[in-house]
C-alpha cells in the first residue's frame, strides 16, 4: 500500500510507548499494532483525531504517501 504509517517514529520522538498511546486513544494494543504495521485497511477520523491529540502532531506527521 502506498500509504505509510509513521506512528513508530512519532512515538519514539515523543518517548511514548505503544500501550500508553493505545490506552489514551481508547483502542486495543492489537489494533494499534495493526495500524503501526500498515495492515489496517482504513482509519476513522475519530481515531486519527485522538492520536493527533495524544501525540500533539498533525495527520501528515503520521501518514505519508509514497508512490509504488
Amino acid at each position: 500500500m502506498p500509504i505509510i504509517v509513521n506512528l513508530d517514529i512519532i512515538l519514539a520522538q515523543r518517548g511514548m510507548k505503544s500501550n500508553e498511546l493505545a490506552e489514551i486513544v481508547g483502542i486495543t494494543t492489537a489494533n494499534l499494532s495493526i495500524l503501526k504495521t500498515g495492515k489496517a485497511k482504513a482509519i476513522r477520523f475519530s481515531t486519527l483525531e485522538a492520536i493527533c491529540k495524544a501525540l500533539d502532531c498533525q495527520p501528515s506527521d503520521i501518514l505519508e504517501y509514497v508512490e509504488d
Binding site: I34, L35, K39, A42, R44
Partner: peptide, 8 residues
C-alpha cells in the same frame, strides 16, 4: 467484515 475489522 475483514475491512471492518481492519478499520481502526
Amino acid at each position: 467484515r475483514a475491512e471492518n475489522d481492519l478499520t481502526i
